[in-house]
Nucleic acid binder design. Structure first.
Lengths: 107, 107
DNA sequence: TCTAATTATCGTAATATTGCAATATTATAT
DNA sequence: ATATAATATTGCAATATTACGATAATTAGA
């Protein structure tokens, strides 16, 4: 059918997948890394840095925003994106949990 | 256009995105968790456990295989999937690196 | 107010993903 | 060798994602 059957999975699995989906595009990984490395958070140089058209960057930023990873002022000419550190750590923890949770006994 | 412009991104960004894409579906997260929690690795109960059709599970397993996360015997009636632990730790490290790499100075 | 600069939204085309029925393949046991 | 059980492959339909041109909205400054 094409649509994921999210209803048959646990909230935990759906949430991790949902977050992973945002990281599942190199542009978004690059955007996150770039923003996180700026001392000041005057952004959007992004269009030049990343090399995609402005509407495309805008869409990617929106995806990142949706999972709560960005904070800052979102209006005006000089808007300011930056990483929402609490959320960042939350996701870091989720992935850490996922990766830690593995059995050693195997074939 | 629809296709990601992977060539404009760094190998590191592409690789992380590529791996994240595999985790970007709850079925694959569930499959990985299930396999990792089995003491013995006699699998495929998966069709029952996950609740998707056999061809669908097979496809998901294939995606997971592609990034090297599975090892075991892949032939026969009683085949045996299990987590490739070295690869698992490699990916764990990649995500850890990504999440650790963030600046504290912001608005 | 008018203009210039910046970001967001809309519309659309190309491609990718998800899911399953039907079928093929493979390996084991009889 | 044949039947059985388990997994893989194929083909296709439905939906999602990616990308960008055109355009709208927003804000700061002249």
């Amino acid at each position: 059918m094409g649509a994921s059957k999210t209803h048959i999975f646990s909230p935990t699995h759906n949430e991790l997948a949902h977050v992973a989906k945002v990281l599942a595009h190199p542009a978004r990984v690059a955007i996150l890394e770039y923003i996180s490395k700026q001392d000041a958070c005057i952004c959007n140089d992004l269009v030049d840095v990343i090399g995609l058209a402005q509407p495309t960057i805008s869409q990617h930023l929106n995806e990142i925003k949706k999972i709560g990873l960005l904070k800052g002022t979102f209006e005006g000419k000089n808007l300011c994106y930056c990483i929402n550190q609490e959320r960042w750590e939350e996701l870091q923890h989720s992935f850490h949990q996922f990766f830690s949770n593995i059995n050693r006994n195997c074939c």
